[in-house]
Simulated scan of single mutants.
Amino acid sequence: MNRTSEEREAAPPAEDRYRRGTRRTAAEPLTASWEPAGRHRRKRKRGLKGLVANYGWRIYAVPVLLVLTALVVLDTAAPSRVGEADQTGATGATGAPRTSSGPPVATETPPSKVDLVNIPTAELPDGPKYSEQGAGTWQVIPGGTGQAGQGKLYKYSIAIEDGVDAADFGGDREAFARTVDGILADPRSWIGTGQVAMQRVDSGPVDFTISLTTPNTTHGLCGFQIQYETSCWHPPTSRVVINVARWVRGAKAFSTDLASYRTYAINHEVGHVLKNPHEGCKENGQPAPVMMQQTFGVANDYVARLNEVDISNRGVVDADGKTCTPNAFPVAPR
């Protein structure tokens, strides 16, 4: 729309039309001023000082936030320590036990050093209860083995007296038999001499029967002149009588090593089957002969004193002051 010369003269200059407080005509569009009211445009500074001047505390917050973000990302990606404990139990990634705060709930009571000379090592050690009276009859455990060793063959069976609680032999008759088989087939046992062989059978004639037997029945077969629990070889019945009390608790000379004592007891009594007599300690501080009465102890003076009340063993061991260490095998390892 064209305006007359008079209208153009009446209109304010263009720069005045946008000044604050100036009246606009109806034909003029609304236009926001680029400059905020009451403020003058400042010249922005450059460089670090300029950043600080322009952004204030925010310039310090940005790197801090970046570091925190990186830590969160790394923690999220790392394996969970709780997850490791769930998967590995009480150990960390290296398998080492973790420590916990506070005192332990239970602590060890290590065995005291056994005085092999000055205390009554023939006493039965403390331990679990065991069956004391059986029926005087035995049940042979089914099963057999191949021949172990070379030389004269000895066939044997394994039996448990009726009335022996299953807990006394670990609740598994076959496992008990395997333990005995393993002892007799060990090259450190009698087969290691190269003179005898062993084979378990469950029927037919046998040379001996290894019989787990209650103490009261044992006393009747083995005698009880030396009034400490022991085992024996009983020729009239061809029984190797293994006393339940000793099988369960062992002997003080062997301290807490029950497996070694059981091995000794089998080898010692089978040694009698092979016509080996009792022996004493031969060299001070050395392993005892398996035919020494280690159930009573390994000090010659002490064993000799006990044997004074047993006519069959009187004088077998010399009271010469020698003391050996416990030993379960008749054949030294090569």
Rank of each mutant, 00 (worst) to 15 (best):
M1L: 12
R3K: 13
T4N: 10
S5K: 08
S5V: 07
E6H: 03
E7R: 12
A10Y: 04
A11E: 14
A11S: 03
P12S: 07
R17Q: 15
R20E: 10
R23S: 12
R23W: 07
R23Q: 13
A26I: 09
A26Q: 09
A27N: 08
L30R: 13
T31E: 11
A32T: 06
S33R: 13
W34C: 00
P36C: 03
G38D: 13
R39E: 13
R44A: 15
R46P: 00
L48P: 10
K49M: 01
I59L: 14
Y60D: 01
V62G: 01
V62H: 01
V62P: 00
L65A: 15
L68P: 01
A70N: 01
L71C: 13
V72G: 10
V72T: 08
D75W: 12
A85I: 14
Q87D: 12
G92H: 02
T94R: 06
G95V: 01
A96F: 05
T99S: 10
S100I: 02
S101C: 04
G102L: 10
V105F: 00
A106K: 04
A106T: 09
A106E: 07
P111K: 07
P111D: 11
V117Q: 14
V117S: 08
V117G: 01
N118P: 03
T121P: 03
L124P: 04
G127C: 06
P128K: 13
Y130Q: 08
S131C: 05
E132H: 09
E132C: 00
W138R: 09
W138K: 01
Q139T: 15
G144Y: 11
T145G: 03
Q150H: 10
Q150N: 12
Y154R: 08
Y156D: 02
S157I: 01
I158A: 01
I158R: 02
I160F: 08
D162T: 08
V164P: 00
V164G: 00
D165R: 09
F169H: 14
G171Q: 11
D172L: 10
A177S: 10
A177D: 00
R178V: 03
T179K: 13
I183Y: 13
P187M: 06
S189E: 04
W190C: 08
Q195V: 01
V196R: 09
M198S: 01
L212F: 13
T213Q: 06
T213S: 11
T214Q: 04
P215C: 12
T217W: 02
T218Y: 03
C222A: 05
F224D: 14
Q225V: 13
E229Q: 15
E229F: 12
T230W: 05
T230V: 03
S231T: 06
P236Q: 06
V240C: 01
V240R: 05
V244T: 15
V244K: 11
A245E: 00
F254M: 09
F254L: 09
S255Y: 00
T256N: 12
D257H: 11
D257A: 10
A259V: 11
S260H: 11
S260W: 02
Y264W: 15
V270N: 01
P277W: 10
H278A: 08
E279G: 05
E279V: 02
C281Y: 10
E283S: 15
N284C: 02
G285C: 04
Q286T: 13
T295K: 02
F296H: 09
D301K: 04
E308S: 09
D310I: 00
N313C: 00
G315R: 08
V316H: 03
V316S: 05
D318A: 15
D320A: 09
G321W: 12
G321T: 12
C324P: 07
P333R: 11
